[in-house]
């Protein structure tokens, strides 16, 4: 029973992983790509590791998988945030059809006053 549930979790995780990587290919600019791929790949890998926990139960590997899930959920958004900030400061433009960029406006206003 546990193994079937684990297989279902692994299949869901694989589907989200694949869709995240497809988003990395298809979406037009860096910020959209970062958004899609970070969300999907984080949840997908969490699904695979939770499947491993269901396969193994409360053994050494299962508890380490739980620890790994917590670690990814804490660190993946932080690294996405750092990359987006670094890319914006290094001058990567938004997609041409974007609606607004308040961050750019505020940065320009700040640099004019100082």
């Amino acid at each position: 029973m546990n193994e079937i549930l684990g297989m279902i979790f692994i299949v869901i995780g694989l589907a989200f992983d694949f869709l995240g990587c497809l988003g990395l290919i298809r979406l037009p600019d860096l910020y959209n790509r970062l958004q899609a791929s970070t969300k999907s790949v984080t949840l997908g890998t969490c699904g695979i590791l939770f499947g491993l926990f269901l396969f193994k139960g409360f053994t050494a590997a299962g508890l380490k998988a739980i620890l790994c899930i917590l670690f990814i959920l804490l660190t993946a958004p932080v690294s996405a945030h750092a990359l987006a900030r670094g890319a914006h400061k290094s001058g990567v433009k938004l997609w041409g059809k974007s609606v607004c960029d308040k961050y750019d406006e505020d940065k320009n206003a700040l640099s004019k006053t100082t």
Partner: peptide, 21 residues
Amino acid sequence: TPADRAVAVDILGILVLGFCG
């Protein structure tokens, strides 16, 4: 741009965890 490559490296690093599992 270099930033795109950095994003791809980050995502690959999370995918390797799935391989390990």
